[in-house]
Amino acid sequence: MPKPHDRGSWPTDEPIDRDEHPHADWELRVHALHQVLGRKGLRRTDELRRAIESLDSDTYQSLSYYERWTAALEILVVEKGILSTEEIDQKMADLASVGR
């Protein structure tokens, strides 16, 4: 069974949705973060792809493009010991309480 990113092997008759959504600020920032980490030698394009490909099939197909990039960013920074999942959880909670 081909992995879910390998779309040439997932036949479909679904029409192409040509609507284009304006990118949200966070999407542009995730893209930029990947590039910044890349320039610092902390992340490679091939690693981004590998991390995205490690998502399970349902997750891969349900997430939007930059949601996948976010999931991959977390996988890579945790794997490299730059951040921990717990830290990210805590920071998310802190940011939510500040925003309230």
Partner: peptide, 19 residues
Amino acid sequence: YYARRAQAIEALLVAKGIC
């Protein structure tokens, strides 16, 4: 969820001086 997750990751990377 992912927008907030991304903000948290960026905030931490900046706080730790990674970028």
